[in-house]
Structure formats: structure tokens, C-alpha cells
Design a protein around this nucleic acid. Structure first.
Lengths: 406, 406
DNA sequence: GTTGATTCTTTACTTTCTGTTAGAAACCTA
DNA sequence: TAGGTTTCTAACAGAAAGTAAAGAATCAAC
């Protein structure tokens, strides 16, 4: 067998690409007429009609929604993505929280289930929890698996997307677990596994702030730290699917703090929510004052608590937060210099804080950028804590609708 | 005017892509038959023949070279990229050296001219030098501009490729100079301007180590430091064309050393050839011992000298080199975690040193990588000091041959 | 040498896309 | 109701790739 070099184009590829363009637009614009599709794609009107016809009559993916308002002549037929009675499941498998959602084919969330992650009990327990969440989502609506086209799940860690194997996850302490296989055996539908941060980027790219952007980065600043990068319109996977391990960027080689990965000075060990909580708990003065101010016991102090203390004017908390944010700014500035994105979207738990997080961060980043790079826009991720889940929906829909191919 | 969203595909696009695939293969494989093209592309034989026909008879870009050896049947006609009497010019505009080459359409270098860069005299003087180099390359062969399809030039710094404006170059102290325009006025042929490091990556991708790779990074470790990244087969430009400013990654925020860009702890200020030379000159002990050992005056100590002293066993020189290399390893490891390339190619002046550079570098990088990322291969760039020049040839050929589109 | 198999290339024809042109359908304005 | 506008469709043309089969040039075997 000869190894093909590049993808040739024949009429089959041609129609597949044009079909994809049209399907993408219908999905993105939500409600759109054929006339508009003609203008946006540059395709001839009969071509658009033909493709839409097939999507409506053969593939059953699109439907005629209603007659639109006239623009001075015959009113357009408005098309919409066919919600049918089909649904998608998306799960964000976080270190502390499992968030599952049921959505329609427009990725509109219809129901949500949350569960505290019980990771201490090991891998099988977590798998059980995921199955549980999926079953709850179905049963509450009285749906069976046949009404669901698939389940997308975002996991923090390194993984082999195609095989659905989690190669390594420090958050869960997993090595080479066959998550896709194990879930497919329990849940009767196609399962898609991907890194949570890359899913955040995919979510923003498909439905959020990144819709019309070609170069942007989503920074997931939460319990851990990672980045999803979109370069020239493409979500990057890296050579082995490990792209985005931003948290293990060394930002201070002289730092005494050792990361979970065993190395010194990792961004994640200096800026993550986990590290902020740790710093507060381990500093007796800070721990005492934060604990008193926010009325939680010292071993219950979380990053959120530290930021709250900061907001209430606690100096020791502020010092901890500013230090962490400073390192994060260094890391983000490094990203910008390297990849020159037009936008930086920041999500994850930390991004849910207000000025006490955002002001020093944006200022810190800009201070560290070379002049021309300062054009970069720094924004909160659109879907906040739902970013990964929205991305997991996008992933399933992309696969099923044939939108993720060449 | 409506903004198009994605590129539609019609028969014109179809033939353009297939033409490009075939042309790329002919260029890459150097000598290839239509039968092989059929196998490699998956296109039908008549399709390949038709496209090749056009390339031979209408476009005059390919020619029948000779009859190949039989494989048990009718012997194949071997095609080659048509060298005709056409040529390309490539220039590497370095901070210390201007290297110009004349090459055939296979990017085989036919002649070379070098000039010490006279950047102290300002922009116009450098433009004059470039014109000079180009004219020498032509006149020595008795060629006139009509025999040359274009000139590609690599410049260290940020630039707007399309307009050919160098936005900022610290090496030359230029701001917003219209290099393309100014050169086109003096040299009667199309001029293409690009960042030197991205050209290194393009050179490796087109003709070198990166030929069959989809995710790799070329690190230019020389006078300055920068990186060219190829992600999913695409050379990245970034949102504004500023991608690759690896040298301004902060690797030690507590370092007292201030970079040309005004910030502290930039990789370039800690690891570049310039910084190594500076460190040696400014440390009295080291300067004295290196100067004596290598028999050069202190103000003539360059990075090369320091490495030589290191090779000859000078401890102070070794300390300086190891420190610089350590920072470089940190930077490269950061790159790997972020983008997960399969290969790292290292070029630039520093890479021309031997074990005293490579051993601590590869060891340092691997030490700083998380386990699964250690699969990455670290290799010297194939074309060494000719990398940028080869890339500039590739750029011109790509543009002229229509290979850089869609 | 002649014959048959093998490999490479071309010829003639089919299929399947998109595009063009013209006209029908459905609305607005006057 | 008439004329203009926008949207959509029908019929046909054009262009590309593909298929099948024949032709061309070799090798191998008798």
C-alpha cells in the first residue's frame, strides 16, 4: 500500500467540501435563507439549492423553518438546522466536578446534571459516575440512546483522541485508561474523548467568541492551567495530540516550588487555582487572616476564597493573587510572542473572578508584550464554566455531521 | 461587498489543487514518472497525464527528462521540474552577513555572494548592499533580470509580508521600512520579503528535514533567537504575521539582564549568540582567559570564540555556555509542551558548534520534558547556515508556481 | 525471434459536479 | 392591476475526474 501524500480533489471531495461549508453556515447562523447562502459562499444559486435539497430530503439534517420577511421581492425560505427529536450529550469531566448536559442539535442546552467528582475511589468509580450522569440526563427526559447521536467528554490530561485512551492525567492520576472503550461498553452510543482545554477552544471556535477568528488562544485557568490554540483556523492537536500543555511551561526556573510533574517553576505550580489555595494554606499568616475573614476553616481555603479575601481587602491574600497573576501574565505573553494570535480568550475557574483577577492580568500581559503585539485582544471566554461542555457538543456534532474531515 | 466565509470548491479550484499536488511532488521527488504520480496521488492515470501535459506544453514548468528503467514492462517517462534557463535569487539579510545565492528552479544553488553587513550606515546603505549582491549574482553569470523569476529575502524582525514592510527589526534598528517597494524600484523583478526564521522553517519544510512532517519547529539560535513553527502542515504566520518571536519568551523573570526590547529575562537576552559574547566580555576573568586562550582581543570575542574556549577546556567559558544553553533548553521545552511537535530542528550560528553545544542542549531539553513528550526528535537543521536562503528560494518558487494558495 | 505477460500511457466515452441563462413564483410599491 | 424586486427552479452547457479498453514499449521465456 502506497502512502498518499496529499488529498486529491475529485467531484466527490468537491461536493463534500461545499456541503460542509453550507452546513457550517446553517449551523453558525442558526436561521438563514438560500439567497444568503449564495451571497456568503459565492456558489451559484442552483448549486446551493441542490445541496440544501439533499440536506433536507435525503440527509434530513436541515429543514424549512418558516417564510422570512421580504426584502422587496419574493420572501426567502428560512432554513434551520433540523433539531428533530435528536439530542447530544456533553460531559466535562473535571477534577472536582462532573458536569453533564443534554442538548439539541444546535448545541442549545436542554438539561444539566452536576456531580462532585469522586476521584479518590479510582478509575472505575469515575467511569460509574459518568455513566450515571449520562443515564440521568436520558431518563429525566424519558429518552433512550437511539434518540442521542453521541456523547462527547472532555478530560484534563494527555490523550490519544482516535483511540480514546487517556495517556496521562495528573488530575485523576490515570495512566493509559481506555475511557472511550469503557464508556462505549456501558452507554450504547458513539463516545468521543478529547482534552478539556482543546474542547474549550473548539466550543469558542464553533459557537462563541472565536466564530470568525483565525488565530486565537483559549487559556484555561482553573484548577490546572492549559491552553487550546487555533492557528490559521485550525484547532491544533500536535504531533501526538498533546498540544496545549501550557501549564507546564517553565516561567521561573529558580522557583523552589515543585510541580506535580516533578519539575520546578511550571506555570501550573505557580498560577493555578490549586497553587493559589496551597500558597494561602501554607502561609500561616495569610491562612489565618483569610480563614477568619471568609469564615472557613484553613483546610477548606480554595482559590475562590483567596480571591474573595482579596476583594475584601486582605493584604496577604492580595499578595498571593498578584504573584500568581503575574506568572500567568508572563505565560500568556510568551504565548502571544510565539503564536501572534489576534485574541486571547481566558476561561476556567479563575476567570470567574472579577476586577481583582482581570485588572492585574490584562495590565500584566500588556506590560510584557512587545509593542506591535499589544494589539491582541484579551477577553473572557464566552461560555464561562460551560466552555468545555459546549466544546464537547461541538465535537460530537462535527463528527456526526461530517464536518471534521479534510 | 459581502465577506466570504470559506473557500468554495468548483472545477477551477479542483484543477488548481490537483495541479498543485502534482507540481509539489515533481518538485519534491525531483525525478518522477507519471505512473508514480498516479500511485502517490490516487488520481486516475488520464487525469495525471492531462495535468502533466498542461504543465509541459502550456505552462512550460515541467519537461520530459529521459526514459527511465523498466520495471518489467514499458519503461516510464521521467519528468523533472523544468530548469530551462530560468533562475531564482535568494538573500539572507543577516545582522552581520548578507548571503545571496542564485539558484535554478529546483533550488539548487549555482552561485553565492557574501558581504559583511554595513548596518551602521543606516537603511539606505543596506538596501544598496542588497542591490549590489543581486547585481553581482546576475552579472557574474551574464544574466539579465528577465531570466530570473524573482528574489526572496529573509529579514530578522517583524514584518507585514503582503506589503513587504519591515515593521520592526531590532537587529537593524528599522521601523516601518518599505523594503519590498524600495528593492523593486531598484531590481526589476518581483521581490518577496519574509521573516528569516519562518523562511528557515519553509526551507526545511520544502526541501529539508521537514519534507514529510506535519508538526515541527525550527529554532533559529544565532545572533538572536526565534522559532518557525509548522502546525498541521501549515507554516504559521500568526494573526498579524508576527508569529515566532520565541526570543522574547520570558524564561527567567528574575534575571537582571535587560533585553533590547526593554524587558527582563527574555530568552534572547540569556541564550543568544549576542548574549553569550556579551557575558564573556563583561566578565573580567572570563574575558581575560578566553582572550588569551583563543588569541583575540577582548572586544573581538564572539559566541564562536567562547565555544572554542569551552572546547579547549576553559572553565569560565564553559560556565557561560552552559548557562545560556540551559535557558535555551527551558525555552525549547516550553515550545514542545505548548505545540507538541514531532521534531525540533535547530539551526542558526550556535547550532554550528559541536558536542559542547549539542550535548547539554539535548540533555537539558529532555530533562525538562514531561514523559510522553520525550518522544520528540531533536535534530540539526539540514541546511545549516543556508537554511534561510533555501527558504527564500522556496518562497519565491511557491509564489510564482502558484503553490502558496488555497 | 516470437509470444505472452507486464508496465506505462493514451484514447474515447461516461459521470458528476458547478455555472449560466432564462423563466417562474411570490412579494412590494404605486 | 402593472411593473419592479427578490427568491427559487428548470434546462442546458462546460469542465473536471473517472472508467474501460486499446496501444506502446519493454521483459521473460520458450
Amino acid at each position: 500500500m502506497v502512502k498518499r501524500v496529499t488529498q486529491k480533489v475529485d467531484s466527490e471531495v468537491m461536493i463534500r467540501i461545499n456541503r460542509r461549508i453550507i452546513l457550517q453556515l446553517i449551523r453558525q447562523k442558526h436561521m438563514i435563507s438560500r439567497a444568503e447562502l449564495v451571497k456568503l459562499t459565492g456558489l451559484a444559486a442552483p448549486t446551493v439549492s441542490r445541496i440544501v435539497d439533499r440536506l433536507v430530503n435525503e440527509e434530513d439534517l436541515v429543514r424549512y423553518a418558516r417564510i422570512g420577511d421580504s426584502n422587496g421581492g419574493r420572501p426567502p425560505v428560512i432554513l434551520e438546522f433540523n433539531p428533530k427529536e435528536k439530542h447530544v450529550l456533553g460531559i466535562d469531566l473535571g477534577a472536582t466536578l462532573i458536569r453533564g448536559v443534554l442538548a439539541d442539535l444546535d448545541a442549545e442546552i436542554e438539561m444539566e446534571v452536576q456531580l462532585q467528582t469522586d476521584k479518590e475511589q479510582g478509575y472505575q468509580a469515575v467511569v460509574n459516575q459518568v455513566v450515571n450522569v449520562a443515564e440521568k440526563l436520558l431518563s429525566k427526559r424519558g429518552l433512550d440512546a437511539s434518540k442521542v447521536i453521541g456523547l462527547g467528554i472532555g478530560v484534563p490530561g494527555l490523550l490519544d483522541k482516535a483511540k480514546g485512551i487517556v495517556t496521562f492525567s495528573s488530575a485523576f492520576n490515570w495512566k493509559n485508561v481506555k475511557l472511550k472503550e469503557d464508556l462505549e461498553a456501558r452507554i450504547g452510543m458513539p463516545i468521543f474523548v478529547e482534552n478539556s482545554t482543546r474542547l474549550m477552544a473548539l466550543g469558542e471556535k464553533t459557537y462563541g467568541q472565536g466564530k470568525d477568528l483565525r488565530n486565537f488562544i483559549v487559556v484555561n485557568a482553573g484548577h490546572g492551567i492549559a491552553a487550546g490554540t487555533v492557528v490559521e483556523g485550525q484547532l491544533t492537536n500536535g504531533g501526538q495530540g498533546f498540544s496545549g500543555e501550557f501549564g507546564h511551561m517553565t516561567v521561573d526556573p529558580n522557583s523552589p516550588i515543585i510541580c506535580d510533574c516533578g519539575r520546578k517553576g511550571c506555570l501550573e505550580a505557580l498560577s493555578s487555582g490549586r497553587s493559589i489555595a496551597l500558597a494561602a494554606r501554607q502561609n500561616p499568616d495569610a491562612a489565618k487572616s483569610i480563614s477568619e475573614l471568609c469564615m472557613v476553616s484553613i483546610d477548606r481555603i480554595e482559590a475562590k476564597t483567596v480571591f474573595e479575601a482579596c476583594r475584601r481587602g486582605d493584604a496577604s491574600a492580595e499578595a498571593i493573587c498578584l504573584k500568581a497573576i503575574e506568572y500567568l501574565s508572563i505565560g500568556v505573553a510568551n504565548l502571544v510572542h510565539l503564536l501572534d494570535p489576534t485574541h486571547i480568550l481566558i476561561g476556567g475557574g479563575l476567570s470567574l473572578n472579577r476586577d481583582e483577577f482581570w485588572k492585574p492580568l490584562t495590565a500584566g500581559i500588556r506590560n510584557r508584550l512587545m509593542v506591535p503585539n499589544r494589539e491582541v485582544k484579551i477577553l473572557p471566554a464566552e461560555f464561562k464554566e460551560y466552555d468545555t461542555v459546549v466544546g464537547s457538543l461541538a465535537m460530537v456534532l462535527d463528527s456526526i455531521l461530517g464536518l471534521d474531515i479534510g
